[in-house]
Simulated scan of single mutants.
Amino acid sequence: MAAGLGVLTPSAAAAGRRVLPGDSIQEAVNFARPGDIITVMPGTYYENVLITKRVTLRGYGARTVIKPPVTATTPVTPVNPGTPVAPPEPGATGAPVPSGAAAAPVAPAAPGAAANGRALTCSQADTGICVMGTAEQPVVGVDIRSLTVSGFKRNGIWASHTDRLSVQRVIAEKNGTWGIAQERSTRGLFRDNTARDNAESGLFIANTVDREGGATDTLGAVVRRNTLTGNRIGVTVRRVRNLAVYGNTATGNCGGIFVVGDEGDPGAGDMTIRNNRIHENNKFCKGNSRLPDIQGVGIVLTGAEETVVRANSIRGNVGASPLSGGILLFKSFVGATNTDNVIQDNEVRDNKPADLANQGTGSGNRFLNNRCESSVPAGMC
């Protein structure tokens, strides 16, 4: 058994690495070969993690917790796979801590530093796990599962320029912006996660967050069977196209699901929102420069096109916000219209001020066979 990081014998090195309490997850990632599986054992790890290559990072769910670092140490420079590495001295950063010793929290490189030759644009010091590719070289096939990321100033997990990122059975809680978020990426899979008590969206997928622009094609991203509670918004998909949001449960948020577009071309939409359970999202969230107060919101489409909202259960969303109600086609603040959307076969009951509402001047929107009691304008139930 090699010293440090729980590295397996050379013949099995590509198969997996273990990180024990007192070790550094970041060091394990730095020294991993593409395709390696890094297993983070039960414990609490005080650090930020940057991933720029294809690895699997997995833990033991609620028993493996990543929290913000408390003290900073000198980061370890990544090495090329296969380069001989001397084992660290006991007590050094990332080295096993002798029995009975306290594990020192570890901080990574400063925000903006380069990692594996790639500029770090994620605010790493404020985020639990950053997955970062570049426009020229997206990072492909990163798999994050069965971990808890808790209490970060910005995001639990943030990803940019990725393809086929998979985030499964992750708990993202009490983070200052988003629980799990992704931009400029394709074919992401977000399944069986729990996002709770995050200041903004539990799950957030966007074209880009640093400028306006037309919607981008996610090439079939999937948001499936996630549990979202206590967030400002359960799921937000902003200025993207071609994805599915289904089988999720959103309750106790200020709002359930938001589909947001703008006047850019192409427009946001061409997606399916189905079989979600969106009940009693009646938490109150004060408005900001982009949105009014949010309370009692089921599903909102604003500036969306060719989106199918089907077979959802939307109950008991009650509030006095302009956004309140069951399913709402909302007038966009930037003048983008909702066009050619289909709202069909939903159970929409006990939402106030209305179960269904169609605002704005959009055209081609159809409300078909929904089981509801009230609508604005009347006659859509």
Score class of each variant (00 low, 15 high):
residue 52 T to Y: 06
residue 19 V to I: 14
residue 17 R to P: 10
residue 37 I to A: 08
residue 51 I to C: 11
residue 59 G to M: 01
residue 25 I to E: 06
residue 22 G to T: 08
residue 25 I to R: 08
residue 21 P to S: 02
residue 38 I to K: 06
residue 31 F to L: 08
residue 25 I to M: 06
residue 56 T to R: 13
residue 25 I to Q: 05
residue 48 N to D: 04
residue 36 D to N: 14
residue 59 G to W: 00
residue 45 Y to K: 01
residue 51 I to Y: 09
residue 22 G to L: 06
residue 41 M to S: 14
residue 53 K to T: 09
residue 39 T to D: 00
residue 50 L to H: 05
residue 25 I to A: 07
residue 40 V to E: 11
residue 35 G to S: 04
residue 57 L to Q: 06
residue 47 E to L: 02
residue 50 L to V: 11
residue 27 E to G: 00
residue 24 S to Q: 01
residue 27 E to K: 01
residue 50 L to W: 10
residue 19 V to W: 05
residue 26 Q to T: 05
residue 41 M to P: 03
residue 17 R to Q: 13
residue 48 N to E: 08
residue 20 L to P: 00
residue 28 A to Q: 13
residue 57 L to P: 00
residue 27 E to L: 02
residue 59 G to Q: 03
residue 18 R to A: 11
residue 47 E to V: 01
residue 24 S to E: 11
residue 38 I to S: 10
residue 32 A to S: 15
residue 39 T to R: 13
residue 22 G to W: 05
residue 43 G to Y: 07
residue 43 G to S: 02
residue 59 G to F: 03
residue 21 P to R: 00
residue 58 R to L: 14
residue 37 I to P: 04
residue 55 V to L: 10
residue 34 P to Y: 04
residue 42 P to H: 14
residue 38 I to L: 12
residue 28 A to R: 11
residue 32 A to E: 03
